[in-house]
Design a binder for these strands. Structure first.
Lengths: 215, 215
DNA sequence: GTCTATATGAGGATAGAC
DNA sequence: GTCTATCCTCATATAGAC
C-alpha cells in the first residue's frame, strides 16, 4: 500500500467495469483490503481476473477508485436524506430524530459503503494523505455542510437558535450519531433498533437544549 | 478468525512472555491483524517463533490476549487522568479542556493501544461477540462510568447541574472527544495540536451550556 | 480465460543448546 | 524441560504470460 499516482487505465468495456466496481465494493467491504483477493473479486463480478488487471493497474488502484465512487454515492444519498427531513419540517424534533436514525445506520443498499469506510480507517496510516483528505471533504464534509445550510435557514426562520450553523452541525453529528456509530463498530455489528432510537432521541434532546428556539 | 475458547497455555518463562506480548502489541498495532506475521512478532520480541507457539495456541489467541491486557492498561490510565482532573477542580472549564485533550489523543506510551483498538474495529465482524462486548465494558465502559461518578459528585457540590450523570458523561465524550477521534482516524493520523484544542474547547463550552452550574 | 512464476503466510517438526 | 534455529508442508496471494 504505497502511494500511487497513476490514474486507472481507461480501457475495456464499461459494462464489465461497473460489474468489477460493484464486486470490489462488496468484497473489499466484506473482507477488508488485505483479505479481499483479486480472485474473489473477479468471481463476484463474474469476470476473469485478467479483465480486472485490464481495467485497473493493481489492487490498490482498484480500492481507491471504488472508494471514490462510493464516497460520492453516500454523500449524495445523505444530502437527500437531510433535504427530505429538514426542508420544511412540521415537527422539528421528530424530523431530527428520524434523520438521526437514518444517518446513524447503514441505509438500505449502502451497507457496503459503510464497510468500505471501515477499510479506510483500518488502512489510514498506510494510505496516501490525499486519499484520506479527499474522503473527508467529499464525504462527511459534504454532509456536514448540507446540515449547516439547513440549520442556518432554520435559524433565520426562528426554528433554531444559532449564529454558528457550522458548529451546530458538528454538535448534531456528535450528539446524535457518533455514539450509535461507535457502538455498532462503525456499522459492522448490528445495533438493536430500540437502542438506536434511544441514543438518537437523547442526542436530539440535548441538541435542542443547545439550539432549540424556545428554551 | 473463528471463535476459540481455549485459554492460552501457561507454560514458558514469564520474561519471554512479556517480550512476546509487547512485541505483539507493537506489530499488531502497526500492521493490523492480517498483515502482522508471527515471524515479524518473533523478530520484534527477539524470540524464536516456536517460543510464541509455546506460549500461545495460535495467532488469534495471541491477539485476543494482548488486546485484553491493553484494554486494562488504557482503562486504568484513563481513570487516573479523570481522577486527576476532576477530583478537586479549581477552574472546572480549564480542567475539562485539559482532560478532553488528554483523552482525545493517544497518550505518551499508549500509541500502540489505540492502534490495537483500530484493529478491533477493522476485525469486529469477524471477532467473537464476547470479545467486542468485553472490550466495550472493560474499556470505554469503565472510562464512562468513572466520568459519571465524578459528574455526580460535582453535581452534588453544585459545580454541575445534572441528575443523570450517565447521560452527561456520554454527552461529554461525544461533544469533547468524538470529533477529534474521528478526525484523526482513531489516532492513526496526527491532528495538529491547535486544531485539537479548538475542537475540545468548543466541545467543553457546549457541554457546559448543557450542564454548567450557572446558566 | 487458464496457466504459471514467485513470494509469503501459518503452523508443525526436528535438530541441538543450556 | 524451555529456548533457538532451521526446514517442511500446505494454502493462498499478486501479477504477468499464454
Amino acid at each position: 500500500m504505497t502511494a500511487a499516482t497513476t490514474p486507472p487505465a481507461r480501457t475495456g468495456r464499461p459494462a464489465k467495469r461497473v460489474a468489477i466496481d460493484r464486486a470490489a465494493r462488496v468484497v473489499f467491504g466484506r473482507e477488508g483490503y488485505i483479505r479481499a483477493s483479486v480472485d474473489s473479486i473477479a468471481a463476484e463480478a463474474h469476470v476473469s481476473k485478467r479483465t480486472i488487471y485490464n481495467h485497473y493497474q493493481d489492487k490498490e488502484q482498484l480500492l481507491l477508485c471504488v472508494l471514490k465512487e462510493s464516497t460520492h454515492a453516500v454523500a449524495e444519498h445523505q444530502e437527500e436524506l437531510i433535504d427530505r427531513h429538514l426542508a420544511s419540517p412540521v415537527d422539528l424534533e421528530a424530523e431530527l430524530v428520524a434523520l438521526g436514525c437514518a444517518l446513524a445506520t447503514p441505509q438500505s443498499g449502502f451497507k457496503e459503503h459503510f464497510a468500505l469506510v471501515r477499510v479506510i480507517f483500518a488502512e489510514a496510516s498506510r494510505l496516501p494523505g490525499e486519499v484520506t483528505d479527499s474522503w473527508r471533504t467529499e464525504g462527511p464534509g459534504r454532509t456536514q455542510a448540507r446540515l449547516a445550510r439547513h440549520f442556518a435557514t432554520l435559524s433565520a426562520a426562528g426554528r433554531l437558535r444559532t449564529d454558528e450553523p457550522q458548529e451546530a452541525a458538528a454538535h448534531f453529528t456528535q450528539l446524535v450519531t457518533s455514539e450509535a456509530y461507535e457502538r455498532s463498530f462503525h456499522g459492522a455489528l448490528p445495533l438493536p433498533a430500540d437502542e438506536l432510537e434511544a441514543l438518537v432521541t437523547a442526542g436530539v434532546r440535548a441538541f435542542l437544549r443547545l439550539y432549540g428556539a424556545r428554551s
